[in-house]
């Protein structure tokens, strides 16, 4: 196995990996609870996925196949950077295919292709505390989680409804895990929230700068917070993907000229490519 000279397999030293592994086990045992961990400086800047990278580095082995996505795509700069980090330090086999991956590290999306048992999702998390915008103090938010006092969050969402007629959070939409902890799903669009519920895959979350790890075990109830008279709703588009014609995937809006011209394409490039390979076409392709 080729790994970078002078560094351990997957960069982290063994003691650091053990520390992170212990934190992951506690995170799995307490779904949605943020476990503090001794996050290390990584050779990538804080805010660029250091939490996800540390989690991935602590779990991955030579038998794994790694997929890294940012904004749903394998070819965005952050994804390229992180993938090459693991190729260099762990000699990892990598893939663009959701189906072939055993570990998927992601920033801001959950793949459209349904996940299966045995896969592990690793989310990069900037601000792990869902209550942070309502209460800046860690001492206070920790108490609120301890006592499951989530009234402020309900009030905030309700005020949104009073003001705008609906809840104005479009991404990083808070969820409740296994009926107990309110958790940040990371800044995925709320479109992806339902994919977290009862997922066959294990979901791990790493926040490097904020030094927290949390988890959702497979087959665990994950509800997006809402109200009986204002049920949770996801984004929808009038358009279908211009490349593959998918009408139910999350779309990126591409500005094609400076006169208001736009087109919509799948954010998940692997999903889109797979559909095209299977013979599906969108407007753009047909034209």
């Amino acid at each position: 196995m080729s790994t970078a000279q002078g560094y351990n397999f997957a960069y982290l030293d063994e003691q650091t990996k053990r520390m992170i592994r212990r934190a992951i086990l506690k995170a799995v045992a307490i779904p949605g609870y943020q476990v503090p961990f001794g996050s290390r400086e990584m050779p990538l800047p804080y805010g660029w996925g250091t939490g996800g990278i540390q989690v991935t580095a602590a779990i991955l082995g030579p038998d794994d196949t790694l997929k890294v996505i940012d904004q749903g795509a394998d070819d965005t700069t952050n994804a390229v950077n992180i993938r090459s980090f693991f190729q260099k330090t762990a000699g990892m086999a990598t893939t663009d295919r959701t189906r072939e991956a055993s570990i998927i590290q992601t920033r801001h999306r959950i793949p459209e292709t349904p996940l299966v048992e045995g896969q592990i999702m690793v989310y990069q998390v900037p601000i792990p505390e869902p209550l942070r915008w309502l209460e800046p103090r860690e001492g206070e938010t920790r108490k609120m989680h301890g006592l499951a006092e989530y009234g402020v969050m309900q009030v905030k969402l309700y005020e949104d409804i009073a003001h705008y007629g609906h809840i104005s959070t479009a991404y990083d939409y808070p969820v409740r895990v296994n009926g107990r902890y309110v958790m940040s799903p990371s800044p995925i669009p709320k479109f992806d929230n339902p994919k977290m519920d009862n997922s066959p895959a294990l979901q791990l979350f790493g926040a490097g700068r904020e030094k927290r790890i949390y988890a959702i075990p497979p087959y665990t109830r994950v509800e997006s917070l809402d109200f009986e008279d204002h049920p949770f709703q996801i984004e929808s588009w009038d358009q279908a993907c211009a490349i593959c014609g998918s009408a139910d995937s999350y779309l990126d809006e591409i500005v094609t000229d400076d006169k208001g011209g736009r087109m919509f394409v799948c954010s998940d490039t692997d999903y889109c490519g797979e559909r095209v390979a299977a013979g599906h076409t969108g407007e753009e392709q047909a034209a």
């Binding site: 351990n8 045992a29 779990i59 082995g61």
Partner: peptide, 19 residues
Amino acid sequence: DPTLDSQRVFRAALDALSR
């Protein structure tokens, strides 16, 4: 092999605790 063996053991433990 302290590096790769402990990774394999941990993954088995993680799998056990997750299921």
